[in-house]
Design a protein around this nucleic acid. Sequence first.
RNA 1: GGCGACAUAGCCAAGUUGGUAAGGCAGAGCUCUGCAAAAGCUUGAUCCCCAGUUCGAGUCUGGGUGUCGCCUCCA
Length: 490
Amino acid sequence: MALRLFNTRTRSVEPFSTYEEGHARIYVCGLTPSAQAHLGHARSFLFFDVLRRYLVHQGLRVTYVQNVTDIDDRSIATALERGGSWLDIIGEHYASFSASMRKLGVSPPDFEPRATEHMPAIVTMIGDLLQSGHAYVAPDGVYYRVASFPRYGAFSGRNLDELLVGARVAVGEQKTDPLDFALWKFAKPGEPSWPTPWGAGRPGWHIECSAMSASLLGVPFDIHGGGTDLIFPHHENEIAQTEALVPGPMANFWLHGGLLLFDGKKMSKSLGNFEPLAHLLERHDPQAIRLLFLQTGYRKPMNFTEEALAGATAGIRRLFDSYELLRAAPLVEPFADVAQQRFDAFPQRFFQALDDDMNTSSALSVLFEVAAEARALAQSGAASALAGFLQQGLELLGLDPQARCEEEPQLAADFVLRLQAALDAGAGAAALTLDRDALAAEAIAAVLAARTAARQRKDFSLSDRLRASLAQVGILVKDEASGSTWSIVE
RNA sequence: GGCGACAUAGCCAAGUUGGUAAGGCAGAGCUCUGCAAAAGCUUGAUCCCCAGUUCGAGUCUGGGUGUCGCCUCCA
């Protein structure tokens, strides 16, 4: 079975194929960093990250473009309000967004084009639209003439009459038809602007995607993505712009991710009903957030709750614990044939799930089953070839056990002092004196060594007090057959 | 008002072509371990309502109800 994806353009699940043999070209509408990024953005880009990993896994070369809308009305307005430059606002939010994506394990795009850095392509395209009669110059800007594109509305499933009923014309707009949309907005005094033959100003929102996708990927390309809220008008308008100039579809597959709701309402800039992504990532494990999103179908609307995230946090711990347990276990083969057959079914089910319109939830359930199975084996002394598959599966979904390992040494600077204090209070001053300059891990190892010695002497009371002292500073001790291990709680 | 989604156990959630329901979290019981923790085993669903098609429907059809999205910047 091969990968099948739901295509918004045809409203059906279709086998995925590329125009160019072995090369997938993807354009995803990125962020407009006029405000802080939120979890909803993370959900969307996380999905495309996994899609991208899967395509690469299938041996495709992937060119992934994700634009940055670095000029828009909101950032200009905010700059006017606060003082300072709109670019500073964009830069600040964009940097924070990038850092968050990195934390979440989202691979950086191959190209991250910014509207302001592609003005020539944008201006050229507007020129072409003017020349071909699809656009006209009005007193306040250049507009796309919707009536000139008969297919307008077909993509998003709307007809012009109905659109007309709901159409609103913003104050000051001087277009000839309410449905027309701006390709270029002439600058008012004090606004940032770029020169063009028909007047200085800035691009409308939609034109940058048409221009930049064409110049970086060519037309048609394979996948165009974004959130469902972009279907209309953004993607409808992109299509109108691009397809007015080029025959055939702008892109073959159109993929749209379901929106993230908070308190049953869409997270949105205008409502401001969200905690900035960067804040959230300070409080929560990015890998857990990743798991949370992948456990829900990407097209479904999804309500975010702290409770669900707590569940995912426990889930990711279990998955990673299993992974580490397996990694440590020696590889012993072969299995009995019957068992082997059963194990072979795991990868099969896993990949089938992903092939089925990227059903990451179902794929994950297979990994959880593998984890359980493998644990049982590791515990019984046998080891498992499943470790390799589990690792592959986790990697494909971008779940990275190493990401957690890196965090472990990052205990607070005064950790050793606090641990010593806990020991003095709990286990008695004579119990142990730690080297104040020791690394946290070394100090913990020293305490554990003392505890192991105590246990060997059957001095369980001291053993328990030492464990309690560690617990007080947030270290959880587990006794396993091979020795004691520790991990950080909270 | 127009268009479009979604409604499955306490919570999250999967469910190709219709054949009595994956997985995770939480809970309960048991096993193991000096005690814990961890782990393993066991345990839970008249699939929003009504009607219909069918031998058989979460899955198809019709009608309700509820929630949400787009139609204005928005992943």
